[in-house]
Simulated assay, not measured.
Amino acid sequence: MNLDGVYDFYLHEKEGGIEEPKRKIMDAVAGDHKDDFKTFYPSPDDLNYLPMNSVLIGFQFTLKKPYTSRGESKFSENLIVRDQFTGLCMVRPSTWKGNLRFAATKLMGPKNSIIIRLFGSNPDSEDMIKGRLYFFPTFFKEGAENDVITPLKRETRTPARGPIPLEVMKPGTKGDFYLLYVPYLGNENFGDEIKEDLKLIAEALKLMFYTYGFSAKRTSGFGVIEKQLEGKLWMRGGVSKNFSNLHELSEILDGYGYEQH
C-alpha cells in the first residue's frame, strides 16, 4: 500500500488542498536539517582516489530568471522538487544531466561519440556505456515563492489558457553546482579524447546556464543565471584554479594539461 499517496490524499481532503499544508511541513523539516545538505557535495580531496585526469568543477551561481521544477505531489505538478531529508528546494542530479546533455546535443548532435563518452549511451542502445560525468544535487537555502504565468499562443501571442499558479525560486537566489569528470581509459588517442571532452563540457555549460536555462519552463527563459559567479576547478595533486564566469572556465579547460598514464 502506498502510504505516501494516502498521506497526500488526507491532506488534500482535510485542508482543502495539499499545496499549503505540505509546504509548511517540508519547511519545518528544513529548519532542523538546513545545513546538512553540504554532506551531499563532493570534496576536492576525493580526486586523489580517482583515476588520473579527473577534474572537479564547482561554483556558486545566482539566478537571473526564476527557476521552477515539477514536484511529486499527486495533486499538483507545479510545486518545486524538495529533498525529503532536508526539506530544501533542490535540483536533482538527473535534472542537471538531462539539461546539460540537451545543451551538448545542440552543439554536437545526439549521436556524437563525445556525447556518448560524457553522458553514457541511451537506455534503448544495445551497447551500454557509462558516461564520464557525475552530477550532484543543488540545494537552495532560500524558500520558494508563489508566482503565476499565463501561457501564450505562439501565433497570436494571446493567452492560450488561464493563469497557472506555480512555485519558483526567485531571481537573485544562489545555488551551488558541482560536476565531476572521471575519464575511464580510452583508446590510444586518450589525450585527444580528454581535450575534446573538456572543450564540450565548457561550451555546454555556457549554453545551458547562459542561454537555455535548466528549469522545467526553460522555453520561457526560466533557469538562466547571471554571468558573474564564484567558481573553482580542482585537479588531482592539489592543483586548483579560480574563475569568475564560465568563459574563464572555458579558457582554463582549453589549456588543461593532462597527465600521461
Score class of each variant (00 low, 15 high):
F214Q: 00
I129F: 15
F119G: 00
I25F: 02
G5N: 13
G191I: 06
M108V: 09
L233S: 05
K153L: 13
S121P: 00
F85K: 15
G255A: 09
P137R: 09
I116P: 02
Q260R: 08
E203N: 11
N53I: 01
T105S: 12
K22Y: 08
T219Q: 11
L152F: 13
E196C: 10
R23G: 10
A144L: 11
E19Y: 05
M1V: 04
K74E: 12
L179M: 13
F75H: 07
F243Q: 04
T173C: 09
S76W: 01
H33W: 11
L50D: 06
G58H: 04
Y258V: 09
F85M: 14
E230F: 03
M108R: 14
Y41S: 03
A28W: 02
R154P: 10
P51C: 08
D147M: 10
S54N: 09
S215W: 00
E15I: 03
F119Y: 11
Q228F: 15
Y210I: 14
E77H: 13
E145I: 06
P183A: 05
A30I: 06
S69Y: 03
K111Y: 15
M235I: 04
L56T: 01
P110W: 05
V29L: 15
L118K: 01
G109N: 04
K106V: 02
E226K: 04
V182H: 03
M108T: 07
L198W: 00
M90D: 12
F214I: 08
